[in-house]
Amino acid sequence: AGKPVLRLSSPASETDQRAVALIEKFAPAIASFATFEPHWNATLFKQGTELEAISRGNLDMAITSAQELAVFFPEFSIFSAGYVHKDAAHQVKVFNDPLMEPMKKKVEDDLGVKLLTVMYLGRRQLNLRKSKAELTVKTPADLKGVTLRMPGTDAWQFLGKALGANPTPMAFTEIYTGLQTGAVDGQDNPLPTVVDAKFYEVTKQICLTSHLVDLNYLAISKKVFDALPADQQAALLKASNDAAEFGRQNQLKKEDDLIAFLKDKGLDVYEPDIKAFRDHVQKLFLSSEYAASWPKGMLDKINALAS
């Protein structure tokens, strides 16, 4: 038989940092023993169905999220809660820490999916139509009555509520018009998304809440992974980590650069009272049904890893 083909399906576009990192770093690094065949823009499997596709042997790799894993394993909702990870480095520490082992093992045993590495998606920030002069956001109370577009699932909507806003779901492709016409007052995304989707043309401020340091996991079929000899497994793991690191540094640099760009476009960019937001959001999450599914002491251990 020839080299195994590793088919990956992802809703990310080809120019997304994650895609670029996998194409430029991951694919060449494993080229000697496997062919990486990515399918972007969710052309192969719909967003959110990749894990079951891997599980049923219909797909080899995916870029999955904590939200998607939480559908099967509610404890993963801890990583979709606000203000859990401090920054990109914290994510890596948590992922490589022994505290993740039971969770990784459960995903392997129950779904046959192996989580290879953690990818940095960016810090989600508030992006509002009103200028700072019209609406200065210091604490969650300032967001009262602000209609905030958030992705459609419960966990996202809860995060929006925890921030103090009025969350509402809307398809990503409709956000621009929604912001322009005032159907929504704001949206939240990492800065690179704000720029790629040109939301800065129809909004006047960025409030740097950094309420979610968002992550993805690069995932592979356990069966496919286990079939590889040990040296190739090691090479594949290294390639994953290298690609993730490459993407992470690019994304971090981009986030830094874009603050200047957005200011240049006339947007107000400022930090709110982060502590007020963190306390409010964490308090709401801890008393929610989500926290009930988190392993005991997990949040404390995660907090302890934040340097």
Partner: peptide
Amino acid sequence: IYGGITTP
């Protein structure tokens, strides 16, 4: 749609 009251 364009006055921002509803999505399409």
